[in-house]
C-alpha cells in the first residue's frame, strides 16, 4: 500500500519528529511512503536524518508539484495546524481521490478546521499539542490502525 503524507509549514516544534515517528511506523508495517511537503520542511527532514536511516526509499516532492503530478495512492495523511494546511489536505483529497486522514493539532484545537475537514469527508483526529509530541503520537497510532481497518 502506498501512503502519501502532507506537511505544510514546519513551524510547530513537534512536526518533524512526529513525521519521522510516523514514517518509521509505516515502514515497519511495510507501507510505501511518499511525502509532499514545503521546501523548508523537506530541508528540516533531511537534516534530521543525515545517514538516511529512516528516509531511505521514501519518495518526496514539493507540496505544489504534488498537485500537478498525480499518481495512485491508497491513503493520505495530513498534519493540519493552520488554515493553509487544511486547504492543502482538502485539495490533495480532491486531486488524488483517496481515503484521507487529517490530524488537527495546536495549542488550542481550532474547531473550524475540524468542521471544514469533516465537511469534505476527511477522517479527522485532534491533539492539543505544540511542543510535546506525545498526544500527537498517540493519535498517529490510531490513524495507522485505521488505515488497516478501512
Amino acid at each position: 500500500m502506498r501512503i502519501l503524507i502532507i506537511l505544510g509549514c514546519p513551524e510547530p516544534p513537534l512536526l518533524i519528529p512526529s513525521f519521522i515517528y510516523l514514517l518509521n511506523m509505516l515502514k515497519n508495517k511495510g507501507y510505501e511512503v511518499i511525502l509532499s511537503a514545503n521546501p523548508a520542511a523537506l530541508k528540516l527532514i533531511e537534516t534530521s536524518d543525515p545517514e538516511k536511516y529512516y528516509l531511505k526509499g521514501v519518495g518526496f516532492q514539493n507540496i505544489d508539484e504534488g498537485l500537478k503530478n498525480k499518481f495512485d495512492v491508497d491513503g493520505i495523511i495530513g498534519f493540519a495546524h493552520n488554515d493553509p494546511a487544511v486547504n492543502y489536505i482538502i485539495t490533495y483529497k480532491a486531486v488524488y481521490d483517496a481515503k484521507t486522514f487529517a490530524l488537527v493539532f495546536g495549542k488550542e484545537i481550532n474547531q473550524e478546521f475540524v468542521r471544514t475537514l469533516e465537511d469534505e469527508d476527511v477522517i479527522t483526529f485532534t491533539a492539543r499539542a505544540f511542543h510535546n509530541p506525545t498526544p500527537v503520537l498517540v493519535k498517529l497510532k490510531n490513524i495507522v490502525n485505521n488505515l488497516e481497518n478501512h
Binding site: G8, C9, N38, D64, P84, N87, I90, T91, T116, D119
Partner: peptide, 25 residues
C-alpha cells in the same frame, strides 16, 4: 493550481482574472 475548499470562486473583471492563492506558511 487552485487550493482550498470547493467551490472556489474565480472572478473575471475588466482585463484581469482574480483568484485565491495559498502558501503553506
Amino acid at each position: 493550481m487552485l487550493i482550498g475548499k470547493p467551490p472556489i470562486p474565480v472572478a473575471y473583471h475588466d482585463d484581469y482574472i482574480i483568484f485565491p492563492y495559498t502558501k503553506p506558511c
